[in-house]
Design a protein around this nucleic acid. Sequence first.
DNA 1: GCCGTTTTCGGCCCGACTGTTTTCAGTCG
Length: 575
Amino acid sequence: MDISNEKIAEVIGGIGEYLAMQGVAFKPRAYEKAAEAIHSLAEPVSEIYKKGGLKEVEKIPGVGRSIGEKIEELILHGKIKEYEGLKKKTPVDLAELSSVEGLGPKSIKKLYAELGIKNLADLEKLARAGKIRTLPGFGEKAEAKILKGIEFQKRSEGRLPIGRVLPLAKSIVARLSSVSGVEKCTVAGSLRRRKETIGDIDILVVAKNPERVMEKFTGLPNVARILAKGPTKSSVALDAGLDADLRVVEPAAYGAALNYFTGSKDHNIALREVAVKKGLKLNEYGLWKGERRIAGKTEEEVYGALGFGYIPPEMRENTGEIELSHKKELPEPIEYGSLLGDLQTQTSWTDGANSIEEMAVAAIKAGLKYFVVTDHTKRLAMTGGLDEKKLLKQMEEIDGLNKKFTGRIKILKGSECDILKDGSLDIADEVLAKLDVVGISVHSYFNLSREEQTARILKAMTNKNADILFHPTGRVLGRRAPYDVDMDAVIKQAKKTGTILEIDAYPDRLDLKDEYIRKCVDSGVKMSIDSDAHSVAHFEFLEYGIANARRGWAKKSDIINAWPVEKMLSSLKRG
DNA sequence: GCCGTTTTCGGCCCGACTGTTTTCAGTCG
C-alpha cells in the first residue's frame, strides 16, 4: 500500500512543528507550506515519485531538495530518520495536542518539559488537577481555556462541507445586516473562495457602531461559546462544530479588509511581497505609501494600485493567478447563473423524490432551458434501477411531456448507466443509442486495485454511447474516499474518446474536484456541471458546481451545458 | 528550507487579541 498524501503532509508538517518548538526561524514555515501543498495535491505524491523520481517531486511548489529527499525517504522506507529522532526527543502526540484551540508548539514544548504531558489524556488530567496554572506563563484562565478547548475538540467534526456551511453563514449575515448602523456585511474567508470544505466562517462588517454588532454576533443563538471579544474583532465557536470570526472595519478600509480576510493566506502573502517590491505596504487597512493610504476602499482599487486586474475570489490560491493577472491574461471563469441545462437528474422512476413533470416545473423555475432525465439502471436494484423495457417506457412519457412543455423547457432522454465490474455497461447498446444523453458511473467494487479500477473505467469510456462520465472519482465528502483511479489516464482517455467529464454539484460530492477541473481545462477536455438532483429542491446545487468550476479556472467554453441545447448535443460523441 | 522580472545569497507578511505580563510572548488567521 502506497503512502497517502495526508500521511506525508502530516509527517512533513510535524517536522515543521518540532522545529518551531525549538525556536528555529523560517524553516517551520517552509515545512508548513510544503505540507499544505502536498495536502491539496490531487495526485498521490507516491505516484509522482514512481513516474519521475525526486526530480518531479521537487517540482511541487514549496518542496525543494531537502524536503524532497525527506519525502523520498518516507516513500522508500516508511519513515524519516530525522523525524523519528525529533519524536524520540519530544515524544508528544503533536496532531492531537495542537488541535486544541490556543495551543501552539511553544506551549506544547513547555507542557512536556515541565509536566511530561504527551497527549490529550495527559493534558486533560493535569488541567483538571490544577497543575497547568502552576507553570510560568500559564494561569487559571489558560487552564480553563485548555479544558474548554479539549471539550470542544472532542465533539468537533473538523472541516464541514460547503453545502452545510454556506446556508448557515448566509443566515448569520442576514441577522447582522439587520442591526442598525450596519452599512455592509459580507462573508469572507475560504467560504467566499467557495472551497469544498470550510474550517470556519469569516464575516466582515462596515458599521457606525461596532459594539452593537459585536453584541449581536456574540449573542447569536447558535453560539456555543465566545473565544474572543474586542472592539473590532470577535470569535465564537458555533454549535455546528466550527468557529466564526467577525471583523468590523471603516469604509475607507473595506476593500483592503475584504481582500485580507478572503485570502488565501498564500495569495495575500504573494500580494504583500509585490507591494514590498514597489516600496509599499499592504495590510487589512489599505495599501500604504509611507503614512499615506493610496488604496483600500474597494478590492478593485487595491488590485489596480498593485498593477493587477480584479481576481475572482475562487481563483485566489496563489497558483499562477497573480502572474497572469499582471499580464492581463487571467481567464474569465464561468459566471454564476449561466447554465442553460442540467445533465444529471433522478426522478421517482428510481430514487428521486419527484415525477418527471414536477422536475420540469422546478427546472423552469431554476431558469433552465433543458434538462436530462438520468435514472439509475437495473444493476442498482436497491434504487429500482431501470431495465431496457422500463427505459423505453420512460422515453414515451418524456415524448408526451415535451408536447405539453413546448416552448418552456426541453426534457431530454438519458440514463445514469452503471459501469459493471469488467467495464461493460448495464444496458444494451441498441437501447442506449436511442437516448439523447448517456451518463455512465461506478457504484460498485470501490476497492479494486488502482490498475483494475482504472482499466475498468477507461474501457467503459470507449463505448460510443457513453457520453459523460458521472462523478468520476466517486468520493463522498466526510464519508467515502475517492476510489483508487489514475485520473491523469482518465483525462487522457476523455480527450481521446471525446467523453465529457462531469462536475457533480451535489454538495457532498463536488466531483470532479477543483484540481482535476484545472487539468481538464489545460488538456482541452470538456465538462458538464450537473446537480445530480434527487428532488425539485436540488437544482440550487448547481451553484456549488459552478463555484467548483471557477476554482478550477473553467470558462464558459469548457462547460457544455452552458451552451444552447443543439450545440450541447452536437458536442457529444453521438452528436 | 525555499526561492528568484532587482536575487544562486539574503531575504522570508502583518496585525489583533489574550493572558500574564510591568513591556511582551504565543497563537491565530
